[in-house]
């Protein structure tokens, strides 16, 4: 029985950001399209642009496996 590892990378994943700039300039940011901790980099980018992070709420997708996942496929020879 031979074994082969196959690495699957999704190409050009789409990220979506809903941004609400309140009348006092505070920003509510909703990050969509990330699985796992990849969204933290996006939040850091907006933190750098806008200012201080006041609160953060992680959704269920945050705890899902990241997108670059290795799949193991067993082949019978």
């Amino acid at each position: 029985m031979g074994q082969r590892w196959l690495r699957l990378n999704k190409t050009m994943p789409q990220r979506e950001f809903d941004i609400t700039i309140g009348k006092d300039g505070s920003v509510e940011l909703t990050v969509k399209g990330y699985k796992g901790k990849g969204c933290l980099e996006a939040v850091k980018l907006f933190e750098k642009i806008v200012g201080e992070l006041r609160s953060e709420q992680k959704t269920n997708e945050f705890y899902e496996p990241e997108e670059n996942v290795q799949y193991r496929i067993d082949q019978r020879m």
Binding site: S26, V31, L53, R54, S55, E56, Q57, K58
Partner: peptide
Amino acid sequence: MSAVCILAPVVI
């Protein structure tokens, strides 16, 4: 959805 956060603006 992955995260929702609130950012306070800093004007520099």
